[in-house]
């Protein structure tokens, strides 16, 4: 294969060319050994050289070979990020990127991701909540949103709003205090469970294993905030379809009448929503923007800043539960 029309210095070019010619002979032999098409390999290699010489753009190159390569190398080709992509312009066609099932990015970017210190990526959030009682108007839309989101049975309300009136007429004030699960760092409910059916995740959220709980209700007794509930077997029957099932994201699938009957239930900060990068339903719905959800382990986060505010307090601190739930008075 001739490279005579390539730009460059006269003398050394000849040497390089002969070296390449020699190498090519060996490459042919090597290519013959594989089960894949030798011709395609030679053509792609030749044009790859033109790309590096600037005679051909990589976009044109992939235009020419992508389909053939996919046909020849199949699944494995589709799954491999392509090293020969132009660094400056992201030139993999969108369809190709989709078949590669990777973000359209160049190899150096991929390499950067791979080489990254795992510690930074492994930052484990401590999900916490801050509720500004000055902003809460007691509309209970959080309670309603929670019921609608989690489809909890009658008598089960992961979020409630407590009301208190202070003073005497005409100097009366009213405080509304919403109470989801406080996601304690030392949860008594977890401590008392005899079978580890309830456990605390490293992101700070306490949840229940509905395939293990045997319904002794010790956790309901142990929770100092009354934040645990029990499915005594009642249900809103008209919610269920003909198969006796209702779509409940909390359980990751359709819940049947029996799935939670006889078991303890509790708020898990809408874990299914958190996993999608969404806020819990109660936070999202709050009309007065009184509820804030965030990572308390991140000192710069909004919730961490609010939690260290002078107005911030926590409920029943003397119980040693260390809740990840702050109120602003």
């Amino acid at each position: 294969m001739s490279q005579s029309d390539a730009p460059g210095f006269d003398e050394p070019l000849v040497n390089y060319e002969s070296m390449l010619e020699d190498h090519l002979e060996e490459s042919l032999e090597e290519l013959e050994k594989t089960e894949y098409s030798t011709d395609l390999g030679i053509m792609m290699a030749a044009d790859a050289r033109r790309v590096s010489n600037g005679e051909l753009s990589s976009a044109e190159y992939w235009e020419k070979y992508d389909e053939a390569a996919l046909a020849e190398f199949g699944e494995e080709y589709a799954r491999t990020p392509n090293p020969a992509v132009d660094r400056v312009q992201q030139t993999i066609r969108e369809e190709t990127a989709e078949t590669l099932s990777c973000d359209a990015c160049s190899l150096p970017d991929v390499a950067e991701d791979v080489d990254e210190e795992p510690a930074e990526d492994d930052h484990i959030p401590q999900w916490g909540m801050v509720i500004d009682l000055q902003k809460c108007v007691g509309c209970e839309s959080c309670t309603t949103a929670c019921k609608a989101e989690n489809r909890t049975p009658p008598g089960v309300s992961y979020n409630v709003v407590m009301e208190q009136e202070h003073g005497e007429f005409p100097n009366v004030t009213r405080t509304h205090m919403p109470r989801p699960c406080l996601q304690c760092q030392n949860p008594p409910c977890v401590q008392v469970c005899p079978i580890t059916a309830t456990y605390k995740m490293d992101n700070g959220i306490t949840t229940i294993d509905y395939e293990r709980c045997f319904g002794c209700r010790y956790c309901l007794v142990a929770c100092p905030y009354g934040a645990r509930y029990f499915d005594f077997g009642e249900d809103y029957d008209d919610e269920f379809d003909e198969e006796g099932k209702v779509e409940v994201p909390e359980y990751g699938n359709k819940r049947s009448l029996e799935d939670t009957t006889g078991q303890a239930m509790k708020c898990n900060y809408c874990h299914h929503r958190l996993e999608r990068g969404e806020e819990p339903a109660c936070v999202e719905t709050c009309i007065g923007d009184a509820r804030y959800m965030g990572d308390l382990a991140d000192e710069d986060s909004e919730v961490a800043e609010m939690a260290s505010d002078q107005r911030a307090f926590r409920l029943k601190e003397e119980q040693g539960t260390d809740p990840n739930m702050y109120y602003l008075k």
Binding site: Q191, V192, C193, P194, I195, T196, A197, R212, C213, F214, G215, C216, R217, Y218, F230, D231, F232, T261, G262, Q263, A264
Partner: peptide
């Protein structure tokens, strides 16, 4: 009596399979 009180009687032997050292009830069983 405690069997009757359990929400899921079918799992009443769970304390023998899943122990939890911090739970008084686990030790009690």
């Amino acid at each position: 009596f405690i069997q009757a009180d359990l929400g899921r009687v079918d799992r009443s032997f769970n304390p023998l399979f899943h122990r939890q050292g911090m739970s008084v009830l686990s030790w009690e069983v």
